[in-house]
């Protein structure tokens, strides 16, 4: 059985939370639910309303996007990765389905707790921005690469 202290250590390992005051991190750990998913269990579905984000403690989460009725696995997330933060940041439906691959241990952070924490610790807000900006640049790079490929194929 893990204690609060273990969870604080765990949270601190996550880059997003590394700059946060330990007291606040403990509060976040206290307020979050540890959730274990068994193999194949759905964490959340694409299109659902999001009310929480998850931090992967151990195991692998499969990110599945439904394209034209077909489910396509687009990424795998593992330890210390943050899942589902977009839905709680901008009040939009989940953009992908997440399924556990093998046993998946997570820390569930409710939307209001996460937002409350950003208000209290602006540093976290900046971290979130940085993380999102990194992803955006990565996505942009991928997109232009894909366009390039498409162009070379059609010509």
């Amino acid at each position: 059985m893990s204690t609060l202290e273990d969870e604080v250590t765990l949270l601190r390992r996550i880059p997003l939370f590394s700059a946060i005051d330990p007291g606040k991190l403990k509060l976040l750990a206290f307020a979050s639910d540890r959730q274990v998913f068994h193999d194949g269990q759905t964490v959340f579905k694409q299109g659902d309303v999001g009310d929480a984000a998850y931090v992967v403690v151990s195991g692998i989460a499969d990110v599945i996007v439904s394209i034209g009725g077909n489910d396509v696995s687009v990424a795998k997330l593992s330890e210390n990765d943050f899942i589902g933060e977009i839905a709680i940041l901008c009040d939009m439906p989940r953009t992908a389905t997440i399924k556990a691959e093998g046993e998946l241990d997570t820390l569930k952070i409710k939307k209001e707790h996460f937002l409350g924490l950003i208000e209290d610790a602006p540093q976290l807000g900046i971290e979130v921005m940085r993380e999102l900006a990194l992803r955006l640049s990565k996505t942009t790079a991928e997109l232009s690469e894909a366009r390039q490929q498409l162009k070379s194929q059609s010509s």
Partner: peptide, 16 residues
């Protein structure tokens, strides 16, 4: 007291 002591009473963390 340590965790919640300096939070405003309407802070969402209190529901936990």
């Amino acid at each position: 007291v340590d965790l919640f002591g300096d939070l405003a009473p309407d802070n969402p963390f209190f529901d936990q």
